[in-house]
């Protein structure tokens, strides 16, 4: 495959923590301009894989290439990860978040953030700690999508939020993800995201066990959820 069309190329990625193997020999290539569902049961390693790609977790074996870049500092400039707000002062107001992001990330677009915040009904004057869980997730999404990155990583963005908020977030994702960018969403509630997906990647037993185009799955008359569950053979994955 032409490297210019790859948003992400992972080769032989293995990761251990606390003497426990979390990911083993992961190989994964994602093209540009796709929305990819990263599916797996709780504890399968979805978040860890995202942390490794983003640069939050560093002590790994193998290579991670994002838009042709492998070195961590440059790679971080190509990725917008939904967990990048971890550590923000909870006393800050929503508007201040934009100021801080503008100061630290050259690719952050304040105008985009303001529009997204308005679309998601976020009050600029509200303090972060006063936001409900759903609104905190919306803020996370607005911050993540306001960066101009090659790869967006959304780690369980709909965890614990209501149907209306989920719908608003889904439409924002579709509208605001740049065409050439690739967006990876991890979730274990597949029905939340199945309509969005161009590709599906399944993680099981510490590695990627399947990667399939969503249309191919649908063409076989199978739902994304059923496809995912087929790897777990009726196991409880929730």
């Amino acid at each position: 495959m032409n490297r210019m069309t790859e948003a992400l190329a992972i080769q032989g990625l293995s990761y251990r923590r606390n003497q426990k193997q979390i990911l083993k020999d992961v190989n994964l290539t994602l093209p540009t301009g796709q929305i990819v569902g990263l599916l797996g049961a709780n504890g399968a390693g979805k978040t860890t894989l995202m942390r490794l790609i983003a640069g939050s977790a560093i002590n790994f074996r193998g290579t991670i290439d994002v838009a042709g870049v492998t070195k961590a500092p440059q790679r971080k400039g190509q990725i917008s990860f939904s967990a990048q707000m971890a550590g923000f002062n909870p006393n800050w107001r929503v508007g201040q978040v934009a100021d801080v992001m503008t100061a630290l990330f050259p690719d952050f677009r304040t105008a985009d953030f303001l529009q997204l915040a308005q679309l998601l009904d976020l009050d600029q004057k509200q303090r972060i700690k006063r936001l409900s869980k759903g609104n905190q997730r919306k803020l996370q999404l607005a911050v993540t999508l306001s960066r101009r990155a090659a790869l967006y990583l959304l780690d369980e963005p709909f965890d614990g939020i209501d149907v209306m908020t989920r719908k608003a977030m889904l439409s924002s994702i579709l509208r605001w993800t740049p065409e050439q960018a690739t967006l990876v969403i991890s979730d274990h509630h597949v029905s939340d995201i199945d309509q969005l997906l161009d590709q599906v990647v399944v993680i099981k037993d510490q590695t990627v066990v399947a990667q399939e185009a969503a249309d191919t799955i649908r063409a076989k008359g199978q739902s994304i959820e059923a496809y995912f569950e087929s790897f777990y053979g009726g196991e409880q994955h929730d």
């Binding site: 500092p73 971080k76 990860f81 990048q84 707000m85 550590g87 923000f88």
Partner: peptide, 16 residues
């Protein structure tokens, strides 16, 4: 010390 372990600082595209 928070800088070393928080995403908000460690994910900034800058050398460690």
């Amino acid at each position: 010390e928070q800088v070393w372990v928080q995403n908000r600082w460690r994910l900034v595209p800058i050398a460690d």
